[in-house]
């Protein structure tokens, strides 16, 4: 282990801004993708369900 303290870890030898921006941006993109897919799935199922139950409200489709 090369880190003496938590602040040393977050400083990343002076490169903290670049290192953490990279990792946080990657995490946000992946998290956003998963969330977007979750919502897309919910929307697709809701629409499908409405169609099947004879709900002919075309404005929501």
């Amino acid at each position: 282990m090369q880190w003496g303290s938590a602040s040393e870890f977050f400083a990343m030898g002076g490169y903290g801004l670049y290192v953490w921006t990279s990792f946080i941006a990657t995490a946000l993109c992946m998290g956003w993708e998963v969330l977007a897919l979750w919502r897309r799935r919910a929307a697709a199922r809701a629409e499908q369900r409405a169609e099947l139950l004879g709900d002919t409200d075309e404005t929501t489709a």
Binding site: M12, G13, G14, Y15, Y18, V19
Partner: peptide, 17 residues
Amino acid sequence: APTDFQQGESYRIIFVH
């Protein structure tokens, strides 16, 4: 993983890059 002798800690970006 150890600190890179040339690039210091900035090299750790490669683990996502």
